[in-house]
Design a binder for these strands. Structure first.
Lengths: 97, 97
DNA sequence: TGATTATATAAGCAAATCATTATATAGTTA
DNA sequence: TAACTATATAATGATTTGCTTATATAATCA
């Protein structure tokens, strides 16, 4: 249902995660560092996003990279384009923590 | 905050209400009839939408009409345009119940 | 004025939500 | 293999949410 997808966007942490993933694929530890929250918290939000089909995961060694999967959800893309870019603030993030 | 606005869209009842108001201004009793829920429930959802500035109210006699107020929120409009139209199903709604 | 209609507000409750802490799983490295 | 790192899952608890029932407010009508 459509409302369920918006419910996912209605949380500051998840909305920020999606805005980050709009810039590039990220591993869990990148998200943890940037969001300044616990690793389980990030993992649980990621699971919700994955269950809703909004993100994909791809293992790379011991890291798991998450990326946006919204090509079939144009309105989600529109929404994310209205969020101020986080590119600048993400510069310090090093992959493979 | 942006997430708070999406939180409002993340509820089936409210999302339907907004989709209805996209068609035209409606009084509370129209919403109650269409949504098949209680009048206080509708009033409380309307208050949230009003507090967030998504709808306006206008009294007309003993009725209060609510209308969309999203001219300054383009992404909300985009979202509502992706919701299947309710126009057909709203044909039987008589104003001023 | 008193009854009726439309709407709002308050109180209460079950269910959902978000975070935390503890633990499990899986890959890597020494 | 043992220790370490990255991530997931489980258990728990405080807070929020959505709805119901009861009551209040405001406009209309007889």
């Amino acid at each position: 249902m459509m409302a369920d997808q918006f419910k996912l966007l209605g949380d500051k942490t998840r909305l920020t995660m999606l805005a980050m993933l709009k810039e590039r694929a990220l591993c869990v530890c990148d998200l943890v560092e940037f969001l300044e929250t616990s690793q389980p918290n990030v993992s649980q939000h990621l699971r919700k996003l994955k269950d809703a089909g909004l993100v994909n995961e791809m293992r790379k060694g011991q890291w798991i990279y998450y990326s946006l999967n919204i090509d079939d959800k144009p309105y989600i893309g529109t929404i994310l384009n209205h969020i101020p870019s986080l590119k600048e603030k993400m510069i310090n993030l090093k992959n493979d923590c």
